Simulated assay, not measured.
Amino acid sequence: MRIAVTGSTGLVGTAFVRSLLADGHEVVRLVRREPAGDGEVRWDPKRQYVDTAGLAGCDAVVHMAGAGVGDHRWTEAYKREIRDSRVLGTAAIAEAIATLDVPPKVFVSGSAVGYYGDTGDRRVDESTPPGEGFLSDVCQEWEAAAEPAAEAGVRTLLARTGLVVSRHGGAWGRLFPLFKLGLGGRLGKGNQYWSFIALHDHIAALRHLIDTDWLTGPVNLTAPEPVTNREATAAMGRVLHRPTLLTVPTPALRIALGDFAEDVLGSQRVIPRRLLDSGFSFAFPGIDDAIKAALRD
């Protein structure tokens, strides 16, 4: 297959492209700079520009680009960057796909479990309506921006991703060094649910979305049993053989992270109902397994 990918240098994108190439697929990377060869296509999400000629002949497009939610303190300017990088970029890709004479068979567009807002200890799945808050609003706009592709008849999936367990990046990438030094601990009261997924399973799930030709719409990419922050902290201590006695108090998180603290302290108990119903099998369903897998990557 010929597969176009945005966000190919990010945590998930790098692993995803490696997986595709290992299986003999042809990858077209969408890049913001001048293309360095035939395997790259120019795009500019802020200007909503895509060199559509480079998408010709692609069987699938997987869109994962977007500013990191936890990369900076949430100033008003950075919140605009989070929103625009997702909504404008998705609109550019979806509209480019819709203009092709022969569009790809499938478009997988990134989204996040932030769609559901703070769900407390209530289990939610893809049938649950959107929640409230900044990230929920962003996710709703983000997903709506993919509609031109669906309206053009392309099978369109919205991959609502949880916290990816990896030591190479993302939220967990920041936790591993702290826990290895014995400085890890729960955040706030620790009762908030974290909907996690091992990086290996995340990549396998994306491949599953591409290959399962009847699957469409939103799909949660999370492990079957979310854990609380307290449980995740204990698991890190068990696997790394380190103490986890420290606690980051809620006021300190709010000072350090600004508005983002509310999402760190928020609870999302998200179940991958449609992924399981479609026959996907997790290699690392439990939190201990996911952490051990991350240490082997």
Rank of each mutant, 00 (worst) to 15 (best):
A223L: 02
L21R: 04
L221G: 03
A56Q: 13
A204M: 08
G117I: 10
L199V: 05
A171E: 01
L240V: 10
P103D: 06
V50I: 14
G110N: 03
I82P: 09
A98E: 10
V41M: 09
T156D: 08
D23W: 09
L253Q: 06
T216R: 11
E147D: 11
E143M: 08
S19T: 04
H168C: 09
A159T: 04
E95G: 06
D84E: 12
S136M: 12
V28C: 09
R242F: 08
L158P: 14
V28P: 12
T244C: 07
E126S: 13
V61K: 03
C58F: 12
S195P: 09
R123P: 08
V28A: 08
F280E: 03
A152E: 11
R122K: 04
E151R: 15
R86K: 00
T228V: 03
T9P: 12
R122L: 05
H72N: 10
K180V: 07
P218R: 01
G184H: 06
V5F: 00
V69Y: 02
G162M: 01
I287M: 00
G286V: 08
A145C: 05
C58T: 14
P285F: 02
D289H: 11
K292E: 15
L206I: 12
G114C: 02
L178I: 13
Q48C: 13
K292M: 15
L157V: 12
R83K: 06
V124C: 10
P129S: 12
P104Q: 11
I255S: 10
T250K: 11
Y115E: 06
V165L: 02
V264Q: 04
D201C: 02
L163C: 08
V5M: 00
A149Q: 09
V164E: 00
K79Y: 07
L163D: 02
A65L: 13
K46L: 14
A53F: 15
R29V: 14
F284P: 03
S281Q: 15
V106Q: 07
E40Q: 15
D59C: 11
V69Q: 01
R42H: 13
L295V: 07
L265V: 08
N191I: 11
D137T: 06
L100W: 10
A4S: 09
E76K: 09
